[in-house]
Design a protein around this nucleic acid. Sequence first.
RNA 1: GCGGGGGUCGCCGAGCUAGGUCAAAGGCGCAGGCUUCAGGAGCCUGUCCCGUAGGGGUUCGUGGGUUCGAAUCCCACCCCCCGCACCA
Length: 961
Amino acid sequence: MTSLKQTEEKWRKKWEKAKIFEANPDPTKQKYFITFPFSYMNGPLHVGHGFTATRVDALARFKRMQGYNVLFPWAWHWTGETIAGASERVKNGDETLIRAFREMDGVSEENLKKFVDPVFMAQYYTDDSRESVKRIGYSVDWRREFTTTSLYPTFSKFVEWQTERLRKKGYIIKGTYPVVWCPHDQSPTGDHDRQTGEGVVPEEYTLMKYRMLDGTFLPSGTFRPETIYGITNIWINPEVDYVKADVNGEKWIISQTAATKLKEQQKTVKILDTFKGREIIGKQFTSPFSDRKMLILPGWFVSPDNATGVVYSVPAHAPFDWLALRDLQNNPDLLKDFNIDTETVKQIQPISLITVEGYSEYPALELVDQLQVKDQHDPKAEEATKTLYKKEFHGGILKQICGKYAGKQVNKVKDLLIQDFKEQGIADQMYDLPESVVCRCMTPCVVKLLEEQWFIKYSDEKWKQKTKDTLAQASIYPNSARQWFLNIIDWLKEWPCARKSGLGTPLPWSPGWIVETLTDSTVYMAFYTINNHLKKHCITAEQLPPEFFDYVFYGKGESKKLSDQTNIDPKILKEMQNEFQYWYPLDMRISAKELLPNHLTFFLFQHTALFPDNLPRAVGVNGMLSIEGKKMSKSKGNFITLKDALNQFGADATRCALLLGGEGMNDPDWRKETVGDVKGKLRGFQNLAYNIIDNSKQQKTGHLETWLTSMLQHRIKIVTENLDALKTRTALENALFEVWNDFRWYMRRAEAFDSKILKEALETWARLLAPFLPYMCEEIWSKLAHTDFVSLADWPVYNPKQVNVEAEETENLVKNVLEDTSNILRATKMAPKEIYYYSAASWKWKAYLIALKKSTTGILAVGTLMKELMADPELKPVAGKVAKFAKGITQEINRMPEDMKHKQLQIGALDEATLLEQAEAFFGREFNAKIHTYREDDEQIDDPQRKAGYAKPYRPAIYVV
RNA sequence: GCGGGGGUCGCCGAGCUAGGUCAAAGGCGCAGGCUUCAGGAGCCUGUCCCGUAGGGGUUCGUGGGUUCGAAUCCCACCCCCCGCACCA
């Protein structure tokens, strides 16, 4: 007996030898180009990749069988900093990571040592993963395989072309943006590189510049610059270190930490003096909008780490300010140390500047009372602040006191106001982190204004609009993902497209920058269409100037001239151009939903920009696989590599288990136990198939054969439709289980499986399953005496002519009678000796059909129905019975779905008595009893309990003894 | 907080965009039976509750509402998952 592994191996070799998945342009065939986003090679492929990729492959195989010329290529992503980072961590002896490599990925000690070289690591995982991709049976054209980065120079040339062209179109711009920055690493610190502070982003404060009497500025950070109209004083923490510094030529007083921060934000900071906050408390200052002199007061709640450490006070609208002021007014002792006149402080009145529904003139006061906040140190102060901020931001209207902004809603006018203030020179800005962020290297991070960065201008409104058009013309599976795309397109802004470190392609026009990973992976599918030629003809990177790609992708220039330039044969150039034109646009791209907000949307954007005549036709999105109900995580040990799954369960079971897990955007779950069950199930299928092949030799063409063929048509239809809609789970569920149930029922009814029809049905069945479990299906296909591959066999086509509604309804009748009888036996707990079936009298059928007909043309009501029935000479004599019967069926028929009515009308009167008679042997077998069947209106009827009268069409009466 | 997807009879999951054939498909698990030169095979039945005649009762996150009729439509609320940018 050959093992599963050997069988897989055998077919894989045959496929490879026959090159059946190598796709070349063929103008006589319709093409289908489908891709899976190349995966990042800092680890082996896992079952999560397997889930998405199996959907891709199932679709590829399905389309191939339908006669499409299918191209399914594969490549590997090496770009970025993660591989380099991991390699670095191995070098530094990071035990957790090393253990993960060793235990999860199964890397040998010897290879592990070589992981200090990032390239080795990437190559190792690429080779390892390629093996898995082959073993699981993906129908890939490997001639087009490549890896990214400058280590694959021809691809790098493609990326150069891509970025150059984007730049030419004005989609790549230079800019300065705030980032979370590690002063030690001298690089931005992304979420994954953080020890603490995940998800923290820089926030922009507006610095309102208040002037002291000597001309020194007190820049006070705020998110609510509109409140400047309600300022009463400034808070300084007396215990904290402040500096006086020369900042861009002005004298500023700020906290010491703020001074350090500002240095990273394009400000020249020269510290002139350092002192405790208390030293300036009691001094006076003015607001830019008035000459009113105000006081600097002590505020212990002020944090030096928050913006500038200088806070201006708006007690009417800021709970903290009110509390701090109240504390001083109620407790003048606090002022003792500061040489401040307590009376002056007591006279400070809140100034109201915002009207907000549901609050009085001084919302902060009201809220503090409501929440019973004790003082500025009470944690409830924070809550009050947040509540009020939200309320005033969304619903607040500025009052008369706010000059030209009066009457405006706060959230509508805020941006304008900031801009105005900056232009007037009374405001500046500063970035800061709302929570502390610490880098993996344990250095606390700051905000840095990174200069001269390269960005992709996803913020471009026209580009956004065009990308929406791209989306509109594409099919999206499931369609509910479409709205998500739209939101992301709107939400995207400038994307930094180059980095200083890691693997990748150098930015052609700016040395030192490397094209970032989400940018070099947006349109690379175009590269697949020519890479086979590049490899075959040993074309080098030097031969690939941008003009080359312009020629291939845009048909620009002349092959002859380009040939002179590149030293590539014009014929080959033409061939590549043709091949690109043949395959593009992409017909389908499928990914997990985590890539939707970035990769997939970028993919749409860039195709819109670079390939406007070749826009992607469809995008499929699926959920994310969890393991044993929990999120997959390598570091937590909750991780299954594709290789492990294949070793344990084989390719077919792995594929099926993955696909049966879920579809749409639902997150499927990988459960070891379930996969094992699936494997057992598949073996059962195989046994059944072999059994059929060995035994199905008799030519039979009875009712049951008609039924089986008919049912199969529905299965074909539903599997095809669902695959077309990328509903892989439903498709497989029907192809495997529903078809199986049909076979079961057939065999149960026929009591033998020697009919040739089974083998014919199996031919269809194997083909329906081939996209899902290709190895087993090839094996069965060959045992069915086929010499070709099932992978290339014709996909079964739904044939309405083979649908036989009557056969189906007959079997439904049998099933219903079987069920009703069982139910009676269960309820009565009888062991039957004899069972009597009585089919409905012919007058009932007549009345029933009339009622059915009536209900399809209008409203069915007992009264009108009776009138019609009584016009019939056959029914009139039994008027009493008809009336009773009509009442019952009217109710029943009115609840029946339309298509069922039509079906029954199409069939007309069933000869139930004969059908039941024919099934007597079957019922007898099932119930181990003697079966009698009569017509209700039979003269010779044997009806000891007078049950026959209960008979209805499709519902024979039953009597059990 | 914002955006997206969800909450269905032990588990996984259909159905819910077009309300009635829905006690609600299918798979798994479990229980009982059959079959079997016992093998993690196959077949049948059952698996919300009740029931000595094919039936009845109570269910589809919670609470309301619309309707002759709601898992399906409307409103409010609760809970879970995913994404939210210099990162693959």
